[in-house]
Protein backbone atom coordinates (compact mmCIF):
# COMPACT_ATOMS: atom_id res chain seq x y z
CA UNK A 1 0.00 0.00 0.00
CA UNK A 2 2.71 2.47 1.03
CA UNK A 3 6.39 2.12 0.28
CA UNK A 4 9.28 4.28 1.37
CA UNK A 5 12.11 3.67 -1.06
CA UNK A 6 15.64 4.53 -0.06
CA UNK A 7 14.64 7.93 1.28
CA UNK A 8 17.27 10.32 2.62
CA UNK A 9 16.93 13.81 3.98
CA UNK A 10 19.66 16.19 5.00
CA UNK A 11 19.43 19.61 6.63
CA UNK A 12 22.40 21.94 6.28
CA UNK A 13 24.69 19.08 5.31
CA UNK A 14 23.59 16.84 8.21
CA UNK A 15 21.87 13.57 7.33
CA UNK A 16 18.69 13.32 9.36
CA UNK A 17 17.31 10.31 7.51
CA UNK A 18 19.57 8.04 5.51
CA UNK A 19 18.57 5.27 3.11
CA UNK A 20 15.20 4.68 4.76
CA UNK A 21 13.18 1.73 3.45
CA UNK A 22 9.79 0.89 4.86
CA UNK A 23 6.56 -0.64 3.65
CA UNK A 24 3.06 -0.65 5.00
CA UNK A 25 0.38 -3.20 4.08
CA UNK A 26 -3.32 -2.45 4.34
CA UNK A 27 -4.64 -3.07 7.84
CA UNK A 28 -1.21 -3.40 9.41
CA UNK A 29 -0.02 -1.64 12.50
CA UNK A 30 3.60 -0.60 12.15
CA UNK A 31 5.83 0.84 14.83
CA UNK A 32 8.71 3.20 14.25
CA UNK A 33 10.82 2.90 17.37
CA UNK A 34 13.81 5.02 18.21
CA UNK A 35 15.18 7.56 20.66
CA UNK A 36 14.62 11.30 20.33
CA UNK A 37 16.47 12.63 17.29
CA UNK A 38 16.51 9.25 15.52
CA UNK A 39 14.70 10.73 12.48
CA UNK A 40 11.20 9.37 13.13
CA UNK A 41 9.37 12.69 12.82
CA UNK A 42 11.28 13.61 9.66
CA UNK A 43 10.35 10.24 8.15
CA UNK A 44 6.71 10.89 8.96
CA UNK A 45 6.88 14.40 7.51
CA UNK A 46 8.29 12.96 4.28
CA UNK A 47 5.65 10.20 4.11
CA UNK A 48 2.84 12.70 4.68
CA UNK A 49 4.24 15.00 1.92
CA UNK A 50 4.95 17.81 4.35
CA UNK A 51 8.61 17.93 3.35
CA UNK A 52 10.41 16.61 0.29
CA UNK A 53 13.23 14.11 0.67
CA UNK A 54 16.73 14.91 -0.58
CA UNK A 55 16.62 11.59 -2.46
CA UNK A 56 14.44 8.52 -2.74
CA UNK A 57 10.69 8.23 -3.20
CA UNK A 58 7.50 7.44 -1.32
CA UNK A 59 4.88 5.47 -3.24
CA UNK A 60 1.22 5.07 -2.48
CA UNK A 61 -0.28 2.17 -4.42
CA UNK A 62 2.63 2.44 -6.87
CA UNK A 63 2.45 6.19 -7.62
CA UNK A 64 4.90 8.73 -6.32
CA UNK A 65 3.73 10.83 -3.39
CA UNK A 66 6.59 13.26 -3.94
CA UNK A 67 5.42 14.09 -7.45
CA UNK A 68 1.70 13.99 -6.70
CA UNK A 69 1.11 14.70 -3.01
CA UNK A 70 -2.64 15.21 -3.44
CA UNK A 71 -3.29 11.46 -3.51
CA UNK A 72 -1.80 10.71 -0.09
CA UNK A 73 -3.29 13.82 1.53
CA UNK A 74 -6.78 12.45 0.96
CA UNK A 75 -6.11 9.08 2.58
CA UNK A 76 -3.95 9.89 5.58
CA UNK A 77 -4.81 11.20 8.98
CA UNK A 78 -1.91 12.83 10.79
CA UNK A 79 -1.59 13.06 14.55
CA UNK A 80 1.34 15.40 15.13
CA UNK A 81 3.59 15.26 18.17
CA UNK A 82 2.54 18.78 19.22
CA UNK A 83 -1.01 19.66 20.16
CA UNK A 84 -1.96 21.20 16.83
CA UNK A 85 -5.22 22.83 17.90
CA UNK A 86 -6.65 26.31 18.34
CA UNK A 87 -6.67 26.60 22.11
CA UNK A 88 -9.09 29.54 22.21
CA UNK A 89 -11.75 27.52 20.39
CA UNK A 90 -13.80 24.57 21.62
CA UNK A 91 -13.07 20.99 20.60
CA UNK A 92 -16.21 21.07 18.46
CA UNK A 93 -15.08 24.24 16.64
CA UNK A 94 -11.63 22.78 16.08
CA UNK A 95 -13.06 19.58 14.67
CA UNK A 96 -15.54 21.50 12.52
CA UNK A 97 -12.69 23.48 11.00
CA UNK A 98 -10.41 20.51 10.37
CA UNK A 99 -13.33 18.58 8.89
CA UNK A 100 -13.99 21.44 6.47
CA UNK A 101 -10.38 21.14 5.31
CA UNK A 102 -11.39 17.78 3.87
CA UNK A 103 -14.41 19.21 2.08
CA UNK A 104 -16.91 17.43 4.32
CA UNK A 105 -20.49 18.64 4.15
CA UNK A 106 -21.83 20.43 7.24
CA UNK A 107 -24.49 17.82 8.01
CA UNK A 108 -22.15 14.88 7.53
CA UNK A 109 -19.47 16.64 9.50
CA UNK A 110 -21.70 17.33 12.50
CA UNK A 111 -22.55 13.63 12.77
CA UNK A 112 -18.92 12.65 12.29
CA UNK A 113 -17.80 15.03 15.03
CA UNK A 114 -20.20 13.35 17.45
CA UNK A 115 -18.84 9.95 16.41
CA UNK A 116 -15.17 10.82 16.92
CA UNK A 117 -15.91 12.66 20.16
CA UNK A 118 -17.60 9.48 21.40
CA UNK A 119 -14.60 7.48 20.24
CA UNK A 120 -12.10 9.62 22.12
CA UNK A 121 -14.40 9.96 25.14
CA UNK A 122 -15.06 13.71 24.91
CA UNK A 123 -18.76 13.79 24.12
CA UNK A 124 -19.66 15.72 27.24
CA UNK A 125 -16.96 18.35 26.95
CA UNK A 126 -16.83 18.95 23.21
CA UNK A 127 -18.21 22.50 23.57
CA UNK A 128 -15.61 23.50 26.16
CA UNK A 129 -12.66 25.67 25.19
CA UNK A 130 -9.57 23.52 24.50
CA UNK A 131 -7.45 25.74 26.75
CA UNK A 132 -9.38 24.42 29.74
CA UNK A 133 -8.63 20.77 28.93
CA UNK A 134 -6.09 18.55 30.65
CA UNK A 135 -3.05 17.35 28.64
CA UNK A 136 -4.67 13.98 28.05
CA UNK A 137 -7.90 15.53 26.76
CA UNK A 138 -6.02 17.79 24.37
CA UNK A 139 -4.17 14.73 23.05
CA UNK A 140 -7.49 13.02 22.43
CA UNK A 141 -8.84 16.00 20.44
CA UNK A 142 -5.53 16.01 18.56
CA UNK A 143 -6.24 12.42 17.55
CA UNK A 144 -9.93 13.06 16.84
CA UNK A 145 -9.00 15.76 14.32
CA UNK A 146 -7.10 13.14 12.32
CA UNK A 147 -10.02 10.69 12.32
CA UNK A 148 -12.81 12.92 10.98
CA UNK A 149 -12.41 11.98 7.32
CA UNK A 150 -12.06 8.24 7.97
CA UNK A 151 -8.44 8.01 6.82
CA UNK A 152 -7.13 4.77 5.36
CA UNK A 153 -3.78 5.32 7.00
CA UNK A 154 -3.40 6.84 10.44
CA UNK A 155 0.06 8.26 11.06
CA UNK A 156 0.79 9.07 14.68
CA UNK A 157 3.90 10.87 15.85
CA UNK A 158 4.42 10.12 19.54
CA UNK A 159 0.78 10.86 20.40
CA UNK A 160 1.10 10.08 24.09
CA UNK A 161 4.00 12.32 25.05
CA UNK A 162 3.55 14.04 28.41
CA UNK A 163 0.23 12.60 29.54
CA UNK A 164 -0.93 10.62 32.57
CA UNK A 165 -0.94 6.78 32.49
CA UNK A 166 -4.74 6.60 32.46
CA UNK A 167 -5.08 8.78 29.36
CA UNK A 168 -2.21 6.94 27.71
CA UNK A 169 -3.88 3.61 28.29
CA UNK A 170 -7.16 4.98 26.90
CA UNK A 171 -5.45 6.28 23.77
CA UNK A 172 -3.51 3.06 23.15
CA UNK A 173 -6.67 1.00 23.54
CA UNK A 174 -8.48 3.28 21.11
CA UNK A 175 -5.72 2.97 18.50
CA UNK A 176 -5.68 -0.82 18.87
CA UNK A 177 -9.44 -0.88 18.30
CA UNK A 178 -9.19 1.35 15.24
CA UNK A 179 -6.63 -1.03 13.81
CA UNK A 180 -8.34 -4.30 14.66
CA UNK A 181 -12.04 -3.44 14.46
CA UNK A 182 -12.01 -0.86 11.66
CA UNK A 183 -9.03 -2.25 9.78
CA UNK A 184 -7.32 1.13 9.81
CA UNK A 185 -3.66 1.00 8.81
CA UNK A 186 -1.53 2.55 11.55
CA UNK A 187 2.00 3.92 11.47
CA UNK A 188 2.96 4.68 15.05
CA UNK A 189 6.19 6.32 16.17
CA UNK A 190 7.34 6.32 19.73
CA UNK A 191 10.33 6.09 21.96
CA UNK A 192 8.22 4.16 24.44
CA UNK A 193 9.05 0.55 23.75
CA UNK A 194 6.05 -0.77 25.69
CA UNK A 195 3.62 1.21 23.50
CA UNK A 196 5.07 -0.20 20.30
CA UNK A 197 5.09 -3.71 21.79
CA UNK A 198 1.44 -3.35 22.71
CA UNK A 199 0.18 -1.83 19.46
CA UNK A 200 2.28 -2.93 16.54
CA UNK A 201 2.55 -6.03 14.39
CA UNK A 202 5.85 -5.05 12.84
CA UNK A 203 8.54 -2.72 14.10
CA UNK A 204 11.25 -0.61 12.48
CA UNK A 205 14.01 0.37 14.87
CA UNK A 206 15.69 3.67 13.96
CA UNK A 207 18.81 5.30 15.26
CA UNK A 208 20.84 8.20 13.87
CA UNK A 209 18.53 8.46 10.85
CA UNK A 210 18.87 4.83 9.79
CA UNK A 211 16.75 1.74 10.17
CA UNK A 212 19.00 -0.54 12.17
CA UNK A 213 16.62 -3.47 12.33
CA UNK A 214 13.08 -4.38 11.37
CA UNK A 215 10.64 -7.25 11.57
CA UNK A 216 7.83 -8.61 13.68
CA UNK A 217 8.21 -8.30 17.43
CA UNK A 218 9.09 -11.97 17.64
CA UNK A 219 11.67 -11.71 14.88
CA UNK A 220 13.34 -8.84 16.64
CA UNK A 221 13.32 -10.53 20.00
CA UNK A 222 14.85 -13.61 18.42
CA UNK A 223 17.95 -11.51 17.87
CA UNK A 224 18.37 -11.96 21.60
CA UNK A 225 17.11 -15.54 21.79
CA UNK A 226 20.48 -16.73 22.99
CA UNK A 227 20.37 -14.36 25.93
CA UNK A 228 18.41 -13.76 29.05
CA UNK A 229 18.20 -10.83 31.40
CA UNK A 230 18.68 -10.95 35.16
CA UNK A 231 17.57 -7.99 37.26
CA UNK A 232 19.03 -7.92 40.78
CA UNK A 233 18.04 -5.26 43.29
CA UNK A 234 20.19 -4.40 46.35
CA UNK A 235 19.54 -2.46 49.54
CA UNK A 236 22.21 0.04 48.52
CA UNK A 237 24.96 0.65 45.96
CA UNK A 238 28.04 -1.61 46.15
CA UNK A 239 30.57 -0.05 43.73
CA UNK A 240 33.25 -2.72 44.08
CA UNK A 241 30.79 -5.55 43.56
CA UNK A 242 29.14 -3.73 40.61
CA UNK A 243 32.56 -3.38 39.05
CA UNK A 244 33.33 -7.04 39.50
CA UNK A 245 30.01 -8.12 37.95
CA UNK A 246 30.37 -5.71 35.06
CA UNK A 247 33.74 -7.22 34.22
CA UNK A 248 32.79 -10.85 34.84
CA UNK A 249 33.86 -12.99 31.89
CA UNK A 250 30.56 -14.91 31.65
CA UNK A 251 28.32 -11.85 31.78
CA UNK A 252 27.75 -10.36 28.31
CA UNK A 253 26.64 -6.91 29.45
CA UNK A 254 25.83 -5.32 32.75
CA UNK A 255 24.26 -1.96 33.45
CA UNK A 256 23.04 -0.19 36.56
CA UNK A 257 19.32 0.14 37.18
CA UNK A 258 17.50 2.30 39.71
CA UNK A 259 17.85 -0.27 42.49
CA UNK A 260 20.65 -2.52 41.35
CA UNK A 261 21.97 -4.18 38.22
CA UNK A 262 20.71 -5.55 34.92
CA UNK A 263 22.79 -8.45 33.64
CA UNK A 264 22.57 -9.90 30.13
CA UNK A 265 23.86 -13.46 30.28
CA UNK A 266 23.94 -16.38 27.82
CA UNK A 267 20.71 -18.35 27.97
CA UNK A 268 20.98 -21.40 30.25
CA UNK A 269 24.34 -20.38 31.61
CA UNK A 270 23.15 -20.96 35.20
CA UNK A 271 25.06 -17.96 36.38
CA UNK A 272 22.77 -17.14 39.26
CA UNK A 273 24.62 -19.23 41.83
CA UNK A 274 27.92 -17.64 40.87
CA UNK A 275 26.35 -14.19 41.05
CA UNK A 276 25.10 -14.95 44.56
CA UNK A 277 28.58 -16.09 45.60
CA UNK A 278 29.90 -12.69 44.53
CA UNK A 279 27.17 -10.81 46.36
CA UNK A 280 27.82 -12.86 49.50
CA UNK A 281 31.55 -12.16 49.30
CA UNK A 282 30.77 -8.42 49.17
CA UNK A 283 28.22 -8.84 51.99
CA UNK A 284 25.58 -7.26 49.73
CA UNK A 285 21.93 -7.48 50.72
CA UNK A 286 19.83 -8.75 47.74
CA UNK A 287 16.27 -7.41 47.88
CA UNK A 288 14.86 -8.77 44.61
CA UNK A 289 15.83 -11.05 41.70
CA UNK A 290 14.03 -11.29 38.38
CA UNK A 291 14.97 -13.34 35.32
CA UNK A 292 13.15 -12.12 32.19
CA UNK A 293 12.85 -12.75 28.48
CA UNK A 294 14.19 -9.96 26.23
CA UNK A 295 12.10 -6.89 25.42
CA UNK A 296 12.36 -4.50 22.48
CA UNK A 297 14.25 -2.24 24.86
CA UNK A 298 16.84 -5.02 25.23
CA UNK A 299 16.93 -5.44 21.46
CA UNK A 300 17.56 -1.71 21.05
CA UNK A 301 20.27 -1.82 23.70
CA UNK A 302 21.82 -4.80 21.98
CA UNK A 303 21.78 -3.09 18.58
CA UNK A 304 22.97 0.36 19.59
CA UNK A 305 24.62 -0.03 22.96
CA UNK A 306 22.28 2.73 24.18
CA UNK A 307 18.96 2.88 25.96
CA UNK A 308 15.92 4.19 24.06
CA UNK A 309 15.70 7.28 26.25
CA UNK A 310 19.42 8.12 26.15
Amino acid sequence: MLEVENVSKSFKGRNVVEGMNLYLEKGESIGLLGPNGAGKSTTISIISSLIKPSSGDVKLNGSSVIKKPAAIRKVIGIVPQDIALYEELSAYENLLFFGQMYGMSKAGLAAKIQEVCRLVGLEDRQKDIVKTYSGGMKRRVNIAAALLHDPEILIMDEPTVGIDPQSRSYILEMIRNLNIERGMTVLYTSHYMEEVERLCDRVYIMDHGKVISSGTKEELKNILSAEETIYIDFDRVYPAMYDELQHHQDILRASETENGLKLIVPKGSRLLSRVFQITERHKAQVTNVNVSVPSLEDVFLHLTGRKLRD
Partner: peptide
Protein backbone atom coordinates in the same frame (compact mmCIF):
# COMPACT_ATOMS: atom_id res chain seq x y z
CA UNK B 1 -2.07 23.82 12.83
CA UNK B 2 -0.39 25.20 9.70
CA UNK B 3 1.09 21.77 8.95
CA UNK B 4 -2.32 20.17 9.50
CA UNK B 5 -3.71 22.45 6.80
CA UNK B 6 -0.79 21.78 4.46
CA UNK B 7 -1.20 17.99 4.66
CA UNK B 8 -4.95 18.29 4.05
CA UNK B 9 -6.33 18.25 0.49
Amino acid sequence: TWDRMIVSP
